[in-house]
Amino acid sequence: MAHFTLAVSEGTFRRSFDLLKRNLRFSKSDQASFGIFVAGYDVRAHLEGGTLDLRADNTISVRELDIRWDRLRFTLGINIPEICVGGGCINMPWPIPDICLPRVCVFSGNPDISISPDLAAFVAQEVSFTGRVVARYFDASVPPPLPDLCAPIRIEPLPDHNQWHIHIDPQTIDVDLFDFPDIVGNLIENTLSNAVRAIIPGGFVRDIILAIIGGIADFIRFLLDIPDEIDEWLSDLFNVSFGLLDFIGTLVLDFFSTCNPIYRIDDPFELLPASNGLIPVRIPLRNLSVRVNDAEMVAEVDIGG
């Protein structure tokens, strides 16, 4: 029996997942000049849908998490050098006033020509992911393998002391860069809903029609999503990502997560810091493990002798 045990229920994970979806907003914008060209972006996204499941095979599954773009605007512009004509004055003899020509400039804008389409309505992504949480021991006395393949992508340098590392070990990833069922469903739902709102200003009839439109849009999403559902089901069954992109994505993420733990715990762990010239009190941690079943995630650790 482990000395220390911490368990988190599946319900807690799901509520935390919902909280994250409700509150996480991604927003970024920037613009840069490349000579006469100007390029920029202004994006804002949030998460929707998706389910989280702890499974008896020691994995966590996130299925069909939608990335919704509130704004996905890219700007491409050209900055043409300004050209001005006129502006000079002709001096006339007194009492005739001087004649000044008007100054006319073209290409004074910044940028002068630009296109800035907002693709938010036409783009939607869907991500499904299955992975497990793994605890590994980093022994600082063992030299890293040569060549150290992780070196270029390691976010934090290797520690000079022993540590327990918690890694996410991805099993399957399914990324739909263009989630056509949702894109089509959203377009149909938005177009029809706007038309109904324009025709019928309010009342229960409008609400009923809007509800029917929502149902139809959901059905279209469901129909169009069947191939993807089959793909995800097969991936889950054989524990491998189908599709070249997903397969490469799984390999890359697997390699990245092997090189970069999501959490590190020093071994020995510092229980009391150094104070008044006394050395710190450190306790050795043994047998750190993380396991998942269909009810909860359990982390356990022992104190070394």
């Binding site: 029996m1 482990a2 000395h3 220390f4 045990t5 911490l6 368990a7 988190v8 229920s9 319900g11 807690t12 509520r15 229980l271 306790i283 079943n293 009810a295 909860e296 359990v298 022992d302 104190i303 070394g304 002798g305």
Partner: peptide
Amino acid sequence: ALTDRCDIFGSVHEKGINRI
């Protein structure tokens, strides 16, 4: 399950405390 009656469960064994 350890979390049947709660959201998060934590426990410490007497051996762990005595070792600390």
